[in-house]
Amino acid sequence: MFASLQELIKESEKTGKSLAELVIAAEVSTSGLSAEAIRAKMLERLRTMQYSAQQGLDKPIKSISGISGGSAHKFWHWLDGNKPVTGSLLSKALARALAVNEVNAGMGCIVATPTAGSAGILPATLITLQEAYEFSDDEVVDALFVASGIGMVVVNRANVSGAMGGCQAETGSAAAMAAGASVALMGGNPRQVTHAVGITLKNMLGLVCDPVAGLVEVPCVKRNAAGAAQCFVAIDLALAGIESIIPPDEVIDAMANIGRVMHKDLKETGLGGLAATPTGKSLAAKVWRDS
């Protein structure tokens, strides 16, 4: 069932079950746990997401290496007296995406969604929609199951690791999961969910993984904010019925293929891209000297 998004749509049409129900049913059969226990496990993850997002907004968080931090808190307070061009909704999502990733870089507690380096996008998007549209925790838990179903398809067809596929595989997959989950949360049908996935991933293809000093900080923290923005673009387009001309499953395959031909310097080795700039190199030298 998780070999393609197309299969998920078909299964949903055939059984009349929602995508969330399909993912929960699959989890019941592989884990042997009850649906209630599985939902409780996901709620625990949602609570951690809400907690980590709030932590990063409440106070400035400095990373362990000392090269980044404090942006989420700064941005959140700037929003107080300013009218952001990203509007009231996206601006809050940007702040939360930064917040979760700064908590991550500062050795705080996060939920990997799907990885630690891309942990900000899904919570930022869902928590912001939950607040604005007053969704219940139960509804958001359902959306998280949709996100994991999408993630399983991505893992089966491609991968979610920067080391294997570049940042497109890591923040790209996270944003695609968040976009699909958000469309489901907003009442979109399964087909619209998959097109939100396709549109998001298309817009993030080719993104390289070039972390300064090999750390999950620069550019990862801001890439999470950018991933949330990409996700917002796709949510509204998909809800309006706009589709990806390239079928979403083929977009995932394209991402896998791009990851294969991407040079290894641009796949989490910290050797290319931003990591290889003069400033990137001098920051790396400083971190390693202190180690």
Binding site: C109, V111, L144, S148, V160, E217
Partner: peptide, 13 residues
């Protein structure tokens, strides 16, 4: 598992 994708709950980074 769905929790391989949404999880683990962990200390970063």
């Amino acid at each position: 598992s769905a929790f391989d994708i949404i999880g683990p709950i962990m200390i970063g980074p």
